[in-house]
Amino acid sequence: MDTEQAKPAISKVTPLQQMIASCTGAILTSLMVTPLDVVKIRLQLQNNPYSKRRCFLYCNGLMDHLHFCDEGSNKAWYKKPGRFRGTLDAFSKIIRNEGIKSLWSGLPPTLVMAVPATVIYFTCYDQLSSFMKSKVENEDYIPIFAGIIARLGAVTVISPLELIRTKMQSKVFSYKELHLFVKNKVSHDGWISLWRGWSPTVMRDVPFSALYWYNFEMFKKWLCKNSDKYEPTFGINFTAGAMSGSIASIVTLPFDVVKTHRQTKLWKYDIPQEIPFQDMYPKEGQNTVPTSTWNIMKQIVSKDGISGLFAGLIPRLIKVAPACAIMVSTYEFGKTFFLQQNLKKQEIHTSALVLK
């Protein structure tokens, strides 16, 4: 049999393999970045620790999460901060007094949301990019559109899960009680209420995604060209991921500041058990607390000036840039690995057909 006739179509990475690669990347990123955020929170709160039943914001560079302070429970990872003189001192004292596992005490709640969100996001991006490349000639703007659609999809799917997960953290709930909570919320406020907080998240994450993927592809091509590489290496992907993540972080920081302000209004309130979850958020006009993005921006600018919209830039860069670099380089490495395995299987299959 002729070799050309026996050769099957070029193997590609399957959606399942893309999901495995993105899942591995999300887990690895969380493992490496979580200790930094645990230490950061302990340092920030040592002068003003949270009391029980208060809320605080946690972010590992991939996603941010709202948590209730339930110190003392078996599932709680928030602990009294202690007295630290700096980052290295915090690392050493936490390891010495609480054990090295305490540096990853925020890992479980991170993985619950970060892994499925990242799997959906990266897999959708790759699938959309491949589809668009087969339909259009100019590929320069494909990363922007694919990044926007993929992020919209991921945020939309995860938002109701985030609401339910936060509710579960507020106290111990049985599945029956949780089902009753969702049923009552939908009956009173409609299905749209399950996507509360979707708008500010989209305003921050969608521009970030568009900028990130466009710059990542551009930096990757530029680095390959200047290093005489036909295919990007792990180092090229890592560098491109860090650079594109840094740019996207800077540009979208005002929306991140607004989202944080909106969420951390909860910090001013104790959360008694009898307050319904859907009523915990203070509403605009009831407590003179602005909730719209524009009003919050105006409040920040009037109080702190334009620089207030870029508060926390350095900590965000320190956390997000390496998280983006680790995630995308691990993901691309995983895809390369699976592609090589697929090509080997294809060669074996071709050789078997030729021998026949």
Rank of each mutant, 00 (worst) to 15 (best):
T156F: 08
E98V: 00
I236W: 05
K319T: 15
S246K: 08
S92W: 03
I10Y: 15
S102A: 15
N215V: 00
A21F: 01
F219Y: 15
N226G: 06
N48G: 10
Y212L: 14
Q286P: 00
R42K: 13
S170H: 13
C55R: 06
I94R: 02
L317S: 09
R316L: 08
V301C: 04
S292H: 11
K93D: 05
S105F: 01
D228T: 06
Q5N: 14
G106E: 01
L16K: 11
K319Y: 07
K259H: 14
K183P: 01
V354K: 03
C23A: 14
P35G: 00
Y50V: 03
A248N: 01
G86C: 02
V328Y: 12
K319D: 08
F337D: 04
L36T: 01
T260V: 13
H65Y: 13
P276Q: 05
G82P: 04
Y58D: 06
A21V: 10
G153P: 07
P15E: 01
K220N: 15
F238M: 05
T239H: 11
A242S: 11
A114P: 00
D37P: 00
D256R: 07
K80L: 07
V112R: 07
M19P: 00
L66S: 09
S187D: 09
T264Q: 11
Q286H: 08
M63Y: 06
I314W: 12
T87S: 04
T29N: 05
K101M: 11
R196A: 05
V320L: 09
L355I: 06
A311Q: 12
P81H: 06
S11D: 10
K101R: 09
L211K: 00
F338L: 09
K101F: 08
M203T: 07
A311C: 08
V33T: 15
R83A: 09
F216H: 14
K221T: 09
N60C: 12
V38N: 10
D70M: 08
I192E: 09
R96K: 14
W294V: 14
V155M: 12
C224L: 02
L266E: 01
M32N: 01
S244H: 09
N184I: 02
K335T: 06
V354G: 01
T14N: 05
